[in-house]
Simulated assay, not measured.
Amino acid sequence: MSDYDGAGKRRAEKPRGWVRRHWVATTLLAALALVLVGTSAYALNMLNSFGKIDKVATGALKEENRPDPAPGEALNILVLGADAEADGNNNSSSIKADLDEDGRWKDGRIHRSDTIMVAHVSADRSRVSVISIPRDSYVTIYDEKGEPRGENKINAAFADYGPNGAISTVEHLTNLRLDHLVIMDWDGFRDMTQAVGGVRVYIPETFYDTSQKVEWEKGWHKLKGKRALQYVRTRYGLGDGDFDRIKRQQNFIRLLLKKMMSSENISNPISLQKTVSSVAKHLTIDEEFSVSTITDLAWNMKGLNVDEVDFMTVPLAPIRFGKDANGQSIVNLDEEKGKDLWRMVRNDRVKRYLRLNPDVTKLGSETEVS
Results as ranks from 00 to 15, higher is better:
residue 3 D to H: 05
residue 3 D to R: 07
residue 9 K to F: 10
residue 13 E to Q: 05
residue 17 G to L: 06
residue 17 G to F: 07
residue 18 W to V: 13
residue 20 R to N: 13
residue 26 T to L: 14
residue 26 T to V: 15
residue 27 T to A: 14
residue 29 L to E: 06
residue 31 A to S: 13
residue 36 L to K: 12
residue 37 V to F: 01
residue 39 T to L: 00
residue 48 N to Y: 10
residue 56 V to Y: 06
residue 56 V to W: 02
residue 61 L to G: 04
residue 64 E to K: 14
residue 65 N to E: 05
residue 66 R to S: 10
residue 67 P to T: 04
residue 71 P to N: 03
residue 72 G to L: 04
residue 73 E to Q: 15
residue 75 L to P: 00
residue 78 L to P: 05
residue 88 G to D: 12
residue 92 S to V: 04
residue 92 S to F: 09
residue 92 S to H: 10
residue 94 S to Q: 07
residue 98 D to C: 01
residue 99 L to V: 04
residue 99 L to W: 00
residue 104 R to V: 01
residue 106 K to F: 01
residue 106 K to C: 00
residue 108 G to H: 07
residue 111 H to S: 01
residue 113 S to C: 01
residue 115 T to G: 06
residue 120 H to V: 08
residue 121 V to L: 15
residue 124 D to K: 13
residue 129 S to P: 04
residue 132 S to M: 06
residue 141 I to N: 02
residue 144 E to H: 12
residue 144 E to R: 02
residue 145 K to T: 10
residue 147 E to V: 09
residue 147 E to H: 10
residue 151 E to K: 15
residue 160 D to I: 02
residue 162 G to Q: 06
residue 163 P to M: 09
residue 165 G to W: 04
residue 171 E to Q: 15
residue 171 E to S: 12
residue 175 N to Y: 02
residue 176 L to R: 01
residue 178 L to G: 06
residue 181 L to D: 09
residue 182 V to R: 02
residue 187 D to V: 08
residue 187 D to S: 11
residue 187 D to Q: 11
residue 187 D to M: 10
residue 191 D to Q: 14
residue 191 D to H: 12
residue 194 Q to E: 15
residue 195 A to K: 08
residue 196 V to W: 03
residue 197 G to A: 08
residue 199 V to D: 04
residue 200 R to T: 15
residue 203 I to G: 05
residue 205 E to D: 10
residue 205 E to I: 02
residue 210 T to A: 13
residue 212 Q to R: 11
residue 214 V to K: 15
residue 215 E to Y: 12
residue 215 E to W: 00
residue 216 W to Y: 14
residue 219 G to P: 08
residue 225 G to V: 11
residue 227 R to D: 12
residue 227 R to H: 08
residue 229 L to T: 11
residue 229 L to Y: 11
residue 231 Y to Q: 05
residue 232 V to P: 03
residue 233 R to M: 07
residue 234 T to P: 02
residue 234 T to F: 08
residue 236 Y to A: 14
residue 238 L to T: 14
residue 239 G to P: 08
residue 247 K to Y: 09
residue 249 Q to H: 05
residue 249 Q to K: 04
residue 249 Q to G: 07
residue 250 Q to N: 03
residue 250 Q to M: 08
residue 255 L to T: 00
residue 259 K to H: 05
residue 259 K to M: 06
residue 259 K to D: 10
residue 261 M to G: 07
residue 266 I to L: 15
residue 273 Q to G: 05
residue 274 K to T: 00
residue 274 K to Y: 07
residue 278 S to C: 09
residue 283 L to N: 11
residue 284 T to D: 09
residue 285 I to D: 08
residue 286 D to K: 03
residue 287 E to V: 01
residue 287 E to D: 12
residue 291 V to I: 12
residue 292 S to N: 03
residue 294 I to C: 11
residue 297 L to A: 15
residue 301 M to I: 13
residue 304 L to D: 00
residue 305 N to I: 07
residue 306 V to Q: 04
residue 309 V to N: 05
residue 312 M to K: 01
residue 316 L to F: 08
residue 319 I to R: 14
residue 323 K to V: 07
residue 323 K to H: 10
residue 326 N to C: 02
residue 326 N to S: 15
residue 328 Q to S: 15
residue 329 S to A: 14
residue 329 S to C: 07
residue 329 S to M: 06
residue 331 V to D: 04
residue 337 K to W: 03
residue 338 G to W: 00
residue 341 L to Q: 00
residue 341 L to H: 09
residue 342 W to M: 12
residue 343 R to A: 10
residue 344 M to Y: 04
residue 346 R to W: 00
residue 350 V to G: 03
residue 358 P to L: 10
residue 359 D to R: 13
residue 360 V to G: 10
residue 361 T to S: 13
residue 365 S to L: 13
residue 369 V to R: 02
